[in-house]
């Protein structure tokens, strides 16, 4: 069977004929920097000419404020003049408590629902009904039940970040590759061993992506909830709005986005860690 093979092994080593250092990442970085500069220049000129709205801060003013707030993160002159670091920690603490409680409920409950096809179908209507409810709709209910802004904040985070984890966990568990279950069955593995050794690890990529979506929602919700609660980054924005000082609002928006990005990246790394070559 010695069929001579024609040389068709043109390895696509360098499709681009440009310099080898000019790869995709470098180009993307270049585009990013150029677009950022253009945006800032446009903003600066536009604000100076009052193109957008009267009193809109310039880019340079906003960047100065950003520098000041990030270099003075921790000071405390009373609740209406708190360093942004403190506000950030307050928000993160609320998110952490609500989110961890939500995950502790959602993951085991999702596993239980996902294991039984009957439970999956029976409980699906609840989840689908409650999932699209805006988190802020729970706010009056929380205030009424807890009569406490701190607990209400945690409650809203919990109630709004529970659903993606619950749905993804149940889905992942219900859709474990049936071949893994067949392997487990042919070996005569016990139900408990199958659940812990096969079903949960197999569903882990789904569980983690559920946790990732939940984290994103928790971070989204906390800012809105805090506008009505009294401390935290959301309240910082609300307070600056009452002061009518727009640069600080823009600073807070940037910091909220940056923290959200970091949290999401952490979960993206975790997703990759549990994937083992699978596409999550």
């Amino acid at each position: 069977m010695a069929v001579s093979k024609p040389a068709i092994n043109h390895q696509p080593k360098s499709i681009e004929n440009g310099a080898p250092w000019l790869n995709e990442n470098i180009k993307a970085l270049g585009l990013f920097v150029i677009s950022l500069i253009l945006f800032l220049v446009f903003w600066e000129i536009g604000a100076n000419l009052e193109l957008f709205a009267k009193g809109m801060p310039t880019a340079s003013k906003t960047l100065q404020e950003l520098w000041w707030w990030t270099t003075h993160p921790f000071f405390d002159n009373g609740p209406n003049d708190l360093g942004i670091g403190w506000n950030l920690l307050i928000s993160l603490r609320r998110v952490a408590i609500g989110y961890i409680l939500a995950s502790l409920i959602a993951v085991p409950l999702g596993i239980l629902i996902g294991i039984s096809p009957i439970a999956y179908k029976a409980f699906n209507p609840y989840v689908q009904l409650l999932k699209p409810v805006s988190p802020l709709a729970w706010l009056p209910l929380g205030l009424y039940i807890f009569r406490d802004s701190e607990k209400t904040g945690v409650f809203i985070i919990l109630i709004s970040s529970i659903w993606p984890t619950l749905i993804n966990t149940a889905f992942g568990v219900a859709n474990v590759n049936p071949e893994y279950l067949d392997v487990s069955k042919t070996l005569g593995a016990s139900r408990l061993r199958t659940i812990f050794k096969v079903i949960i690890p197999a569903a882990l990529p789904n569980i983690v992506s559920g946790l990732r979506i939940s984290m994103g929602i928790a971070w989204l919700v906390i800012v809105a909830a805090e506008m009505l609660l009294g401390t935290g980054l959301g309240y910082f924005i609300w307070n600056e709005w009452n002061n009518l000082y727009i640069p600080n609002i823009l600073v807070a928006i940037f910091i909220i986005g940056l923290v959200g990005l970091i949290l999401d990246s952490l979960f993206a790394a975790l997703e990759k860690f549990v994937a083992f070559g699978r596409k999550a």
Binding site: Y180, V183, P201, A202, L204, V274, G277, R278
Partner: peptide, 8 residues
């Protein structure tokens, strides 16, 4: 399709 557990 081998049915190996990918996490093991």
């Amino acid at each position: 399709n081998y049915a190996l557990m990918p996490w093991m």
